[in-house]
Design a protein around this nucleic acid. Structure first.
Length: 271
DNA sequence: CGTGGCTCCTGTTAGC
DNA sequence: TGCTAACAGGAGCCAC
């Protein structure tokens, strides 16, 4: 469900409401990707200072320590003054004096981990290798992006998905952005020419920024932590359109597998 | 070290 | 209609 825009929209939707809240209790459901790393009740009394985002991780700063939160493939967050009884897929409930933060995650690829701070070894392990932030002009630099492509033989689609060069481009946006930039997803990154590099760089920024501005949502249902639905109807030009006519040339869109993930593209428009 | 494949888990959908 | 298999928006881990 969540690529960068959805994670960022989620962050914005509950940040103001939760900052200053004091934790009263924490309930865990079934195991998520990793153990919480602390006894849930040990979080009682902590006060939320800030909610930040790094890649697709949400960082919830407490007055002591920090929570790293990831939505995985199927996770969603909800923050509200009142929440109903926990359902079978609600695996993390943090009750505060401002309301409850709840993670709903059927597949449980998501995570909630407590670390002592930015210097915690686990925080380093999870965050250190992350690439540039595409929505932060100070981070996402054309020269660094171009150099990163130049240094890799990996097919460009997989390099984008990997998150080590630039974060937040998920499987849908990877296909869409490559279509917009007219680049063959199978092309080794170092063979992407300067003009295409430029188009790709601009495309990533523009598409992600637009999606955030319009409240997230890619293909299916998504709602932010305050329950508002997104308004961004990404009408996918290639994703999920195997066999259907390309909006550019009318030839059939093709699907292929790259690293166990599907890629959609137009072999005529993208070369 | 860069790279590719496997893996975690459950729900939905396509196909027989 | 019912069963089964394939597939799903992520990313860490491990073997080459």
């Amino acid at each position: 469900m969540p690529e960068l825009p959805e994670v960022e929209v989620t962050r914005r939707s509950f940040r103001d409401a939760i900052v200053g809240a004091r934790v009263q209790s924490v309930r865990m459901g079934k195991p998520l990707r990793w153990p919480l790393g602390v006894e849930p009740q040990a979080l009682a009394g902590r006060v939320v200072q800030e909610v930040r985002r790094r890649g697709k991780y949400l960082l919830v700063d407490l007055d002591a320590g920090m929570l790293l939160l990831h939505l995985g493939m199927s996770g969603s967050l909800r923050f509200a003054p009142e929440q109903g009884a926990a359902g079978v897929h609600d695996h993390f409930d943090m009750q505060t004096d401002h309301g409850m933060l709840r993670l709903h995650d059927p597949r449980r690829f998501g995570a909630v981990v407590h670390v002592t701070g930015e210097e915690d070894p686990l925080a380093h392990k999870l965050l250190d290798g992350l690439g540039m932030e595409p929505l932060d002009p100070a981070s996402f630099r054309l020269e660094r992006f171009a150099a990163g492509l130049q240094a890799s033989r990996t097919p460009i689609k997989q390099l984008l998905l990997g998150g080590k060069l630039v974060v937040g481009v998920g499987n849908i946006y990877a296909s869409e952005v490559l279509f917009l930039a007219r680049i063959d997803p199978q092309l080794p990154a170092r063979e992407v020419g300067p003009r295409k590099v430029r188009r790709l760089f601009d495309g990533i920024r523009e598409v992600l920024a637009l999606a955030v501005a319009q409240g997230g949502t890619t293909l299916r249902d998504f709602s932010s932590a305050d329950g508002m639905p997104g308004h961004f109807q990404l009408q996918a030009k290639v994703y999920g359109r195997d066999g259907q006519p390309c909006v550019g040339c009318g030839r059939p869109i093709r699907m292929l597998r790259q690293g166990q993930r599907s890629t959609y593209f137009c072999a005529h428009c993208q070369k």
